[in-house]
Design a protein around this nucleic acid. Structure first.
Lengths: 349, 349
DNA sequence: CAGAGCACTCATGCACAGCGAGTGCTTACC
DNA sequence: GGTAAGCACTCGCTGTGCATGAGTGCTCTG
């Protein structure tokens, strides 16, 4: 754990080594780490005083800080960032953990429940809060629509996505629409929307049916009005599964009830999380880590997010964990990454 | 608030009056109440010493206790029970609160979201944890079934309930089944199950289709095998919506992190709550209150539950709140009751 | 530039005292 | 016999003072 793994721009080797130790130890113990301690554990023998000099430099550069005069140093968000990018070694995932994850995934074949349970497990293994979003259907490709009358004024709309997912919505229709007319409208929609993604449909549906907009039963008009409801996964708005609250409160940061509040705030306010996940989604890389203030939100400025995308034929979702910035990134990142791949594999089979 | 509202068996009028004061004040302040305080506020002038005597009696009978020698008295579960049954006055619900509830209910027409938001509001108004269960379909009456092929090996089953609710399930069928055969099977099932509740169907489906069990495509066999999945509301198992965590942590009992843990335990372990709600369901009365140890569960022995049923044409669900035994029953009970009625009205329209 | 020495700063823990709320008990009164 | 007054006692809570120790910053020397 002491080698510097990657090349990097700004810091001398000694500075890096000491920063590494500070971050590593602080992550393990949650106690500010002092010069004496590092002096003892550093392979290269340096006196505490020398180390203090380096530390002071690192503090000036913005990688470290200390809570009060006579306390050890703790990493700043910038310090964590440097640690993650250049110093940290990924920890291999244990075989037993892999096994637990696989078992959990195969325990049920209800996708929703699978995600929920996996979320719980993720929380348990990482001792953090875990988040899982249901697959976004937006980028899924439309296969076909079916219209089934189920009561005089109710219409069941079934939309199939190419990967095999299905979405059903109930619409209120003004008056009863004859079966053959329904079939006819259905056929027409199927022809016009074939091969598009749901997102494309949302954006262009009005144009695509403009010529038939005034069709007699008002059905097309109803569809136009409900296009958001129909082609937006209702789950997208709210369905972020949060689990593992029990685990995160064991973290030493939560002896202070103030932090307690903030985590509950986070759990209740799913919007914040959804918002942040969207930003993660824009990234190209497979997994994304944001540290503390890097997520602009005030509420989350003391938390880090590690998320990864799972992709099932264009339909994607996210899994990840949330925890105090002082988190074991080296362990959590491979874990999240592994779970994401496992879910993708599971869902595509 | 000082009149004794109901007749009751065991206690003298003075004892009741004092018990009333102790419980009432403790609910308001969360501070053990002493004899001196009561002496000052009691309309009938009694010295602290006399009140202490009565209190000692009440303690012996099991209605009061005190945490340590030099502290005031706090009610036991039994004390709360007596208070609820005989002493308490119901508080009228404020017009503004009624308004907020009505507004919330009409904000969306998605039933699930409506319940979720109402739960949040209930938590906010009561400053407690709120629980809402989705309607149990079990006692709903089957209206019709429809079978729609959506992919070569997938079948969408749509089950309508008389009150207008609809449940959709996707089944994997071994091989493709021709459309006309599907229709034929659908018609048959519709005939045989008409007018039954889902629960009855679950219990007797096998018998009702025994004669056609070996029909060529294996469709009936598939239905028999999946009867639980088809006719049990998937939501029944898990769908209890818990909201208002943010509010309950403001309660003074949660300055102790130990209690914090227990409430999180409760939230994560929905099973416990579901289990308790089942017990509440058996009650005949419209609303049910259980205090502390009255719910046998170890985890909930410091919490009280107030729940009420909402009933939409035989399909029922529960709404309620959970909080420390020291809760404002006089306010919470009418609130829960009102919300239950409002939801029922909302859903049946 | 490394390291030793030293003064200084704080957080933490502990013991101790004082306060005040409240009780229980005894005794006196009507 | 119920009511009240007096008094000693208990116990939690708070504030203070003090010792401890970890850790720093700075300076000076090799």
């Amino acid at each position: 754990m002491n080698e510097v793994t990657n090349e990097n721009p700004k810091l001398t080797e000694r500075e890096q080594s000491i920063l590494h130790h500070v971050v590593y130890n602080y992550i393990q113990t949650a106690v500010p780490v002092g010069s004496r301690y590092i002096s003892k554990h550093l392979e290269k023998n340096l006196s505490p005083a020398s180390i203090r000099n380096v530390m002071a430099d690192l503090e000036e550069t913005g990688f470290l800080s200390h809570p009060h005069t006579s306390a050890g140093r703790i990493p700043t968000d910038l310090g964590y960032r440097f640690y993650i990018d250049y110093l940290m070694e990924m920890q291999q995932l244990g075989d037993d953990e892999k096994l637990r994850i696989q078992q959990q995934l195969h325990q049920t074949n209800d996708a929703d429940e699978m995600l929920r349970e996996t979320s719980k497990l993720l929380g348990k293994i990482s001792h953090q809060l875990s988040i899982v979003t249901s697959p976004h259907l937006s980028s899924g490709i439309f296969e076909k629509i079916e219209l089934i009358p189920i009561a005089s004024s109710k219409l069941l709309v079934v939309i199939s996505i190419r990967t095999g997912m299905v979405r059903t919505i109930i619409l209120e229709v003004g008056a009863e629409v004859p079966r053959d007319h329904l079939d006819q409208v259905g056929r027409m929609i199927n022809e016009r929307l074939a091969g598009l993604t749901l997102k494309e449909i949302r954006d262009t549906f009005v144009d695509r049916v403009r010529d038939v907009q005034n069709e007699k039963t008002g059905l097309i008009r109803l569809f136009v009005d409900s296009v958001d409801q129909l082609f937006t996964d209702s789950k997208e708005r709210e369905k972020v599964i949060i689990g593992g609250t029990k685990n995160i409160v064991d973290q030493p940061e939560f002896v202070d009830p103030k932090n307690f509040r903030s985590v509950i705030e986070l759990i209740e306010n799913e919007d914040i999380i959804v918002h942040l996940l969207e930003r993660h989604d824009e990234s190209q890389r497979n997994y994304v880590v944001t540290v503390g203030t890097e997520n602009k939100e005030e509420t989350t400025k003391e938390y880090s997010f590690v998320t990864a995308t799972y992709d099932v034929g264009g339909v994607t979702g996210r899994v990840g964990i949330i925890g105090p910035t002082r988190m074991n990134y080296g362990k959590v990142i491979p874990l999240v990454d592994y779970v994401a791949r496992a879910i993708a594999k599971m869902l595509s089979s």
